[in-house]
């Protein structure tokens, strides 16, 4: 993996980020804003799955609407996250918190795109309610773990 990290480090974009006083902090700020919108869309879907949404309200329609917000916010998270990574690639590859965040993120993304999506659009009553609730709880825990490990990189990375 080292040649990949070195390639990231040597990108013109990474150099521009290192040379600028403002670019990196502003990207960090936009990243956390995008994360906030993303987490909001996750939580609203998870709440419905946990059974805390309005009674009689279609969970499927909420899930589909939240999906669009998730995709747009996810794109913004990625666009603002990548330059932060390439600029610090050589430092981050040695950061156990960054590596943990990436593994957590991979697991959470796969879980969200497969199990969570299927369960969130399943017709009401097709799955036992405990399954839906468990998936909502796991999703919420995983995304909060990704967010928290990301925040801690600043301190212990």
């Amino acid at each position: 993996m080292l040649p990949f990290f070195q390639w990231c480090d040597g990108l013109a974009m990474s150099q521009a980020y290192r040379d600028s006083t403002y670019l990196f902090p502003l990207t960090q700020a936009l990243h956390i804003l995008a994360v906030t919108v993303f987490v909001g869309a996750v939580v609203i879907g998870d709440m419905w799955m946990l059974g805390w949404g309005p009674v009689g309200q279609s969970r499927t329609s909420i899930a589909r609407s939240a999906q669009r917000v998730l995709l747009w916010a996810g794109l913004a998270v990625l666009v603002t996250g990548i330059p932060q990574f390439t600029t610090n690639a050589l430092t981050y590859q040695r950061s156990w918190l960054f590596v943990l965040k990436m593994y957590l993120l991979a697991v959470t993304l796969v879980f969200t795109a497969t199990v969570r999506w299927r369960v969130s659009i399943a017709e009401e009553g097709r799955l036992p309610s405990w399954v839906t609730r468990a998936v909502g709880a796991v999703s919420l825990s995983l995304w909060m773990a990704v967010t928290i490990s990301g925040r801690l990189i600043t301190y212990y990375g």
């Binding site: 906030t36 987490v39 909001g40 869309a41 609203i44 967010t147 928290i148 925040r151 301190y155």
Partner: peptide, 18 residues
């Protein structure tokens, strides 16, 4: 404390934004 602050804010502000 700061991480707890951020964890609460992302849920709070996230739901406000929704």
């Amino acid at each position: 404390i700061e991480t707890s602050h951020v964890a609460c804010i992302v849920v709070f502000a996230g739901l406000v934004i929704m």
